[in-house]
Nucleic acid binder design. Sequence first.
DNA 1: CTGAAAGCGCTTACAG
DNA 2: CTGAAAGCGCTTACAG
Lengths: 342, 342
Amino acid sequence: MSITGSIKGRSSGKATLASVAAHAGVSAMTASRALNQPDRVSDAVRARVALAVAELGYVPNRAARALASAQSNVIVVLVPSLSNAVFTAVLEGIQDAIGSGNYQLLIGNTRYSDAEEEKLLGIYLQSNPDGILLSSLSHSARVTQMLAACGVPVVSMMDLAGAPGQLSVGFSQCDAGHAMTRYLIDKGHTRIGFIGAQLDERTLRRADGYRKAMGEAGLLDARLELMVGDPSSIALGAELLQRMLAQAPDCEAVFCCNDDLAHGAIYQCQRRGIAVPQQLAVCGFNDLPASAWMTPSLTTIDTPRYRIGFEAAGLLLAAIAGETPPATQIDLGFTLMARESA
Amino acid sequence: MSITGSIKGRSSGKATLASVAAHAGVSAMTASRALNQPDRVSDAVRARVALAVAELGYVPNRAARALASAQSNVIVVLVPSLSNAVFTAVLEGIQDAIGSGNYQLLIGNTRYSDAEEEKLLGIYLQSNPDGILLSSLSHSARVTQMLAACGVPVVSMMDLAGAPGQLSVGFSQCDAGHAMTRYLIDKGHTRIGFIGAQLDERTLRRADGYRKAMGEAGLLDARLELMVGDPSSIALGAELLQRMLAQAPDCEAVFCCNDDLAHGAIYQCQRRGIAVPQQLAVCGFNDLPASAWMTPSLTTIDTPRYRIGFEAAGLLLAAIAGETPPATQIDLGFTLMARESA
DNA sequence: CTGAAAGCGCTTACAG
DNA sequence: CTGAAAGCGCTTACAG
């Protein structure tokens, strides 16, 4: 009939492992075992502890566990954007790979900002994560230093790492940019424009691939490049198409660094009465759902974003477990989707 | 010249508050104050502690702080989807409202599943959150019970709560569905179809509004309703449009429960040579970015999703701080965007 | 298969 | 403005 737990002091009033143990008539550590290593406890004890847990409404305290075990079961994920469907797909892949394990995801949105990345990482490191998933290969000096200092496994997503030993999952953004440009060249185009926005690492690598292909064909011309730092959007794509045509009126094809911009470019063509692809070929990058459905359907690069998240999380889990992964780098490739617009 | 910290035992080897304090020549609790309540410490001490922190690369241990203070500084957010742009906008609003406070967001994706919601909540409750943000008004009995048992403030987003005392931020999904239907009726349409997918709480309320308006006008007809549980997508919208026309060939207008379905419906009309809005009016819900740009532009309801997240987080923060909010319910309204498609 | 003791790294009253 | 002691709720070696 006596109340279990401290009468006074800082206790929360909630059931604790100790109260569960008392209720079940075992020691705290046996109660702990019954919950975390059920095989190492007798059937009777396991049942009594389970009953106590149910009757007391016991909820384990994760902070206490993390402190005592020096294992947080936390995985940090940093993505540059949440409004970009590419990264939400990556997150879904990660969530599916983490599955019903006991890991907790700490999802940070860096908004394409190095300063924000530093700030978020600083805060998340206080949770002593077991591993970290990043969306870029290069980072500020401070971030690089924090990553090294914390000493936990890191996997970079989206592109492939150049440096050996660095774990990465993705595909060559440069090769994909090259392949799309080559496709346009093979179609007979010589005046091929490149429209880039945000100018994040991935866009810059795609632009590298574009320049490489144009250079190889002797078609390079700086006036065919239109690069702005603003965030990508349909509206921006519409605006940039106008600017591209003003800047290079003889442009025959436009390679947009992502589908949002390409959609905007095509909508703009429709409004201005420019026939796609007859007067102007337009292509994008990522293959968002609308791309296959719009008229004309959009020629673009299908990217394995969901799988990138899934495989990256798998690789990280393996690294956390101390396994030596079969490879430090996983190339998931890309697919050129040739459709009506180019 | 002696090494600070324990020689042996379970210590992590990382700098602790104790080692910082020793390095600065103060007690641990003075070091703690220097970091958390800098005003209550002398300038000299503050400077010495700051120096020690820098030299040792000290990173506070959040688990220890949470355990000692019984305050996690964690806020749990549960959304039904990450691929739905509506909820990523809600998340961005929340992130902006939380800002640079010391709160940590635990973002869970329930995938429109009650079972998943239960599971996630059970795990997240182990982190002793200070508050919870939910995307629905109604939940499974088990979730309702867990919510009550944990005793922390909860704010429901998207729709407005019926029950008094329940904190909610959003707009009346039913009223919005009613307004859109009424708009179509006022345009002279009598055979107005409703296409719904996923059949989550919000869609069902919009359907309620549709039925109410149709009923008021004496136009109700079950054959005009097409409701399926599949996840919304452009492809599904295209398919459901076909089914709607097969089921109700005399249909003059179609109200899609969200823009993704509406986009798919319009693309399907284009492929089948059905003129929108002349032969068939189509409207959607949410006003996604593409809706204003596509041809024809989409008539839809603009929903304040970013602000819902922002205001909900603000309300939750106030509740956590123990303030009595000016209102338990914040109605952010909606705007009907009349465009070309209907 | 089970347990008594110590400790994880902080913060909270309580003093002075 | 500063500090010695206790405690948050769990897990880790170490025994038996």
